[in-house]
Design a protein around this nucleic acid. Structure first.
Lengths: 242, 242
DNA sequence: AATCAATGGTCCGATACCAGACCATTGGAC
DNA sequence: GTCCAATGGTCTGGTATCGGACCATTGATT
């Protein structure tokens, strides 16, 4: 009768809500900064708007912001043209830290890498499949050139933005959310990888290949180029598990 | 400075929590039944265990169960060997209902179909890529034969189970959860499609092709067969949008 | 200098949700 | 026949979260 209760519940009967709205809110904002959606000095959306977007009461959001303020990640100013401003800079990459973080993730690492691979290669394919407007093409191209001209300290941030931009091009909010989520899970690890000029050149070539394939609608190449690009960092991270 | 505030928040600043733990719980359980995880007469996990799995208090879960009981979907019995039992049967497919539901989903339909395509083709590829244990292969094969021998009223339920089984084979919980989620979103629509013997034959051939490719590790075929299979129903649903 | 719109800062009552203890029922095991 | 383990049923106190009203501050505009 219920011999199979253990069977599939894993996917369906997963937690309805994250334990704690406050902590989750802190994480989300921090992730947004680490993912490069907001850079140093940028202003976050007004509290009322942000609370609505996060589906959380303004009080809860404010507690989260206070928490971030206490950690010197943001700073609030009153008055018109005031707001909450990012005062966080990515810490310098640290291989020791990376090794520790990789081991801490344990079995979850492989899950996150698989999830990312499926979503991002799929997103690249879908983006290549779509008819893009001139404006979309232009914005996307700008993301690429921004990334190529990035100073080292901005590289990781603009890299994230480039990848998220591809997800947005698919026109599928769920897909974009999935890509963002998977990147959030891996972001601390990716940020801990030192930015070596040799790796940057290699990545840059891959980024160009991905962008070109997407813009020309070359579906198989978009997928393959993305897969190669992702496997490079995945292999690096897996190396720390050995 | 914040000119790009509208840029990417969509993916990152999405709601932290689903509006309502109670309603969400009702949905989850109902979806589990509709997805075929539990059939008529099956016993759900004990309240304490299920509440823990769903990350919800027992009280909240019980409210949800009462709600389902009031709707004649489940039935509870006390005592050892008691429990909560499913008393729900899928309603007969109804094309009029289908047309209405498709229109109700509106723009969300395309999103859900894209999301499903990416996740399920990716899952099929990952499943094909893995080394499967003898036990996994056997269980998976059983799912396929169950489906092929299914009486019409069980067809949709076992079809869902087959697809979820593929997602489980990937060994990636996140991917499996994603597939389950995307199927939940489309399930009411899929269930409303009449089961015609001609379609079943067609689907059966596709299912076999998928299963064979996965079991033999033929990655490109696994992906392509899955894509063809999914596009068939997607095209049918899109047809109702006009 | 006065105005005002946009923003953060504060407060309070209502309530959904939780954690855990305890009760009631059932049918198999002994 | 008695016991008992597993299950659903009930209650209570505590708290996180909500939602909405109201206050305080600021700097561009006039």
């Amino acid at each position: 009768m219920d011999a199979e209760v253990d069977w599939q519940g894993g996917a369906i009967f997963r937690p309805v809500r994250t334990g704690n709205a406050f902590e989750e809110t802190v994480q989300r904002i921090l992730e947004a900064v680490k993912l490069g959606v907001f850079g140093y000095g940028d202003r976050l959306p007004p509290e009322r708007a942000l609370a609505a977007r996060l589906g959380v009461s303004r009080e809860t959001l404010r507690e989260a912001l206070h928490s971030l303020q206490a950690a010197d990640c943001v700073e609030s100013r009153r008055g018109r043209y005031g707001g909450t401003f990012v005062t966080y800079r990515l810490p310098a990459p640290d291989l020791g830290e990376l090794a520790r973080a990789v081991r801490d993730m344990g079995t979850e690492l492989e899950d996150a890498l698989t999830y990312r691979l499926v979503l991002e290669t799929g997103a690249a394919e879908q983006a290549a499949r779509r008819e893009l407007t001139a404006e979309q093409r232009e914005r996307f191209t700008r993301h690429l050139t921004d990334l190529e001209q990035a100073p080292p300290e901005e590289y990781r941030r603009l890299d994230s933005r480039f990848h998220l931009a591809i997800a947005e091009l698919t026109g599928s909010p769920s897909l974009a959310a999935g890509v963002a989520e998977s990147r959030m899970r891996l972001n601390d690890l990716l940020n801990a990888i030192p930015v070596l000029s040799r790796n940057i050149e290699h990545s840059a070539a891959q980024h160009r290949a991905m962008a070109e394939a997407i813009l020309t609608g070359d579906i198989p190449t978009a997928r393959r180029a993305t897969e190669e690009h992702l496997e490079a960092t995945a292999a690096l991270l897996r190396g720390f598990l050995g």
